[in-house]
Design a protein around this nucleic acid. Structure first.
Lengths: 214, 214, 214, 214
DNA sequence: GATGAATGAGTCTTCATTCAT
DNA sequence: CATGAATGAAGACTCATTCAT
């Protein structure tokens, strides 16, 4: 029984992985269920035991990738802070996280194509969306404290208060989301690296402007 | 001869109008060429005399709608300035324009669904994109000075210099683009009206921060 | 051992009952094996331990229902005869039986949909069809003298001889079979109740015409 | 234009003919749209320009075949009457028609499989069913006086009155419908030829019994 | 230039059946 | 004996696109 469950978990993961690659390479509508199944090493019908739909697997993927990304970004930031010899300000932390996200997203076609356009509040929010319901087949769905909670705790630890955290995070994520596509795909209005300093400056301003008490 | 041309212009316009409504109502992939043609009062084959593709008409539509929107926004802003008794600052003007855009977009399903996610630099830029080439069948393609040029002129007239206009505009438009979807569709993370003051404040900060000389 | 057998009998019965309801409600081809099994409280694979096929369970059901119906009809007729104060003629008995069948069938969607169209001689005949073979899992398959035998005995007891009993029964059952569908589903060419007197008259004529000696 | 119409009529006819043969040979559910189209010499998609559904073409076919059959039966009967040296009674005419139908149906697998079970009142009635609506692509849909009307006229010409024509015809057709399947498929309860004299006798009785005035 | 009938590749989806546990 | 996950063949149906008229 435990073996069967593990098998199911593996198959579900294989399908997600397969879809991830194919969507990234060929795009959503040019990817067929047959391809996803073939590439995952399962039969076509098996797909429908795990997902109701092509859209279903895409949305699952987006949610999973987005939250994975935020976790990585936070973890990496913590590592950076602890390894840094100098003091790291709150604004610096935000800059680091956003920079990490931009870097990560821009390096992965799937993120550029799908996640960047859907990294919306809904996916990260504290609200209880069905997509975030616990799924016994998805090991990751258990973990995840939630990005907003994480940041809130971080600010508390820093003894920093911001005017409206939701607004700030929504705005910062929205900016990343908006920037990614053009910067990566078209390198417009300028190359990514040239844009970064501007972005850093703006983030700092928005964060500092939002801080009301320290 | 002139009559035949006028006829073609009318048909092209009818197809665009038809697609606009259907995409807004049913979405892109759920809209068929047959429906677009039927609703425009032309035969299915005729569609292919004016557009190469379903994607073609969508992109044409997005470009046209986006630039129309920006024109309206600027025009409305000018009107507001001239009717205002008090002095209107540069930041105020930006706030006005962005507010107008947000309002306009949020009121139109087509904008929410398509334009908001594509109101990228590419569509507005000074670069020469094929979509912006002059098309004898599209009366609007003749006009249009371009949004960036317009703003540049405005700033010159105001005697104001900004650090990097492209970055500023890119950021502001990106923010609108990012905000729209969640705020309108999900009313997340808060109702639109509640979010507006925050947005105004942030725009002011970004604009003022960008101004280097007055 | 006896307990295991009882369990199997119960499962088989549950599957039949489940299929009966689902076929009646959703139709044969819209009913899936999974649904039949679920509704019977057994696993899908278990279905195939009892029936070879979806068609198999349908045919088993039809046979069982048809013969059950005929038994009920005969039993009810006997009851009626014994409770009647007046003499009941042979024709009256046939009318009673046919009437009972029509009533019964018209009240049960499964009968209307399936049995009425299949209440053919094959199911009732004295011939040896595989469906009528004795099945240790089917308690009913043991009993059943057969409708034709029953009627033959009845006529003997009444001291009545008919020209060709098989022809008569085949014709009467065929008529019922033909009548049911239109009368019940479409109420065409007239409502059921309006049609009954006509049917009674015709049955009487056919029966009396067939009687050659009394 | 007339040519295009003729082409469409021919294609529709080819599809019907193709479906007719395949349904007769392989059965309804074992016949695929692809096969129907292939065999008709058109593309799969073309099928859907003429029929909405697999069920649609089957029902169209049943209706058409049933009414064609009745027309043939009546025509043949008339021929027989006019070539006969002796007087032909009303009952004889009915016997002839029913005999013809039985013969025809039993010789054609499609009729045995589909029409015999569906030769219901609905298909023949005087009522206005959508299936009987005039279809410009179906030359036959124009003609057809309707079987009931035909018989009514015949009886008038014969100066014969029956108690309830609808009941009589419904019963006779129902009997044929019921008889066909078993007699042809299983040769039960007896070979077709052996059954015929019985059928003739019963038809005569029912007809004569129904005649109330001559 | 305009039409719309024809095309057929391609899509999603269902479900009877098998078989390892 | 029972299970239900896995299978994958098979099917209905769609629709962008072409092209003869």
């Amino acid at each position: 029984m435990g073996k069967a469950l593990q098998n199911k978990i593996r198959k579900r993961a294989a399908l997600l992985e397969s879809a991830y690659e194919l969507f990234a390479t060929n795009g959503f509508s040019k990817t067929t269920i047959r391809e996803i199944a073939d590439h995952a090493g399962v039969a076509k019908g098996t797909f429908y035991l795990y997902f109701t739909d092509k859209a279903d697997i895409r949305d699952t993927l987006i949610t999973r990738m987005a939250s994975r990304l935020l976790e990585h970004a936070c973890a990496s930031m913590e590592e950076y802070v602890s390894s840094s010899t100098e003091e790291v300000s709150t604004a610096d932390k935000f800059v680091y996280i956003m920079d990490y996200i931009l870097q990560y997203v821009s390096a992965d076609p799937f993120f550029v194509k799908y996640v960047s356009k859907h990294m919306s509040w809904g996916l990260l929010g504290e609200g209880q969306k069905k997509e975030q319901a616990y799924n016994p087949l998805d090991p990751e769905s258990a973990a995840s404290v939630g990005f907003v909670t994480y940041i809130r705790n971080m600010l508390d630890a820093d003894g920093v208060k911001v005017r409206d955290l939701k607004v700030l995070l929504f705005t910062l994520l929205g900016m990343i989301s908006a920037f990614t596509y053009d910067l990566v795909i078209y390198q417009e209005p300028m190359p990514l690296d040239e844009f970064k300093p501007h972005m850093h400056r703006m983030i700092r301003h928005l964060v500092n402007e939002a801080i009301i008490e320290e």
